[in-house]
């Protein structure tokens, strides 16, 4: 099996990791300047609304990752190439970290705006289920040793998880929820949110995506090293 990414130091993958990380840091610095020093407080919520600049982009980063991992899982099931499984697992792990950022920042915002840390409404519950599904995905990978069996089960969970993503996304339209309804112009056609605030939110998606891409490359390299370790083990036992 070919490695998922090049494992050699100074390779193209190395350059991409550093490039993405530097670009993400620069963009984050600029966005933080805008978030704290340029944009005004929100009329009804005060300064706490600023959490949205990480809460929403973190969710989108996670959802995009889960979706790409689902596509890779389907590719694995149709080709039986373990490269797709390794990449899907790397992406799901990184996406889970961003999903946790979304869930916890949302809870902190809710404590001020609703007076409670948590409520079992459709949006919050479906997001919690999403996080639990992908925690289960990682636990499953640890508990199954045989690579093809592990890959097949993981692919099934990854595809199942994406069904929940669709429910999370649509829940604020399908059900009456305590969570705010759609406010971004991409879903409402505009008029619900100050365009400057909305633009900053999109700009903050970019560094999070770059950070996630850097993490995925690092994680995929580790998968390649693990494959190398497996083949070394077999060679040691055989010799």
């Amino acid at each position: 099996m070919k490695p998922v990414v090049n494992n050699e130091r100074g390779s193209k993958a190395d350059l991409m990791i550093y490039g993405f990380a530097v670009a993400a840091m620069l963009l984050l610095a600029y966005n933080l300047y805008k978030i704290f020093l340029v944009l005004p407080d929100e009329a009804a919520q005060g300064m706490i609304y600023r959490i949205i600049f990480f809460h929403v982009p973190a969710a989108w980063t996670a959802f995009l990752g889960f979706f790409v991992a689902m596509v890779l899982s389907v590719l694995y099931l149709s080709s039986n190439d373990l490269k797709y499984d390794a990449l899907a697992s790397s992406i799901n792990e990184v996406s889970l970290a961003f999903a946790c950022v979304n869930l916890i920042t949302g809870s902190i915002w809710a404590r001020i705006i609703w007076g409670i840390w948590w409520t079992w409404d459709y949006r919050l519950t479906s997001m919690l289920v999403c996080v639990l599904i992908y925690f289960g995905y990682l636990l499953l990978r640890r508990s199954v040793d045989e690579p093809t069996h592990r890959a097949r089960l993981s692919a099934a969970v990854s595809i199942f998880g994406c069904v929940d993503i669709a429910i999370v996304w649509k829940s604020i339209e399908w059900f009456r929820t305590q969570h705010p309804g759609p406010v971004l112009s991409i879903r409402t056609g505009g008029g619900q949110m100050d365009p400057r605030m909305e633009a900053t939110l999109y700009w903050n998606l970019l560094p999070l995506l770059l950070m996630a891409a850097a993490f995925v490359i690092i994680r995929a390299r580790q998968e390649s090293t693990e494959q190398e370790i497996d083949s070394l083990r077999r060679m040691v036992h055989a010799s």
């Binding site: 600023r50 959490i51 809460h55 950022v101 916890i104 920042t105 001020i112």
Partner: peptide
């Protein structure tokens, strides 16, 4: 304070 907590978590 809670906004600070939110950014710390992020």
């Amino acid at each position: 304070t809670y906004m600070f907590y939110g950014f710390v978590v992020a």
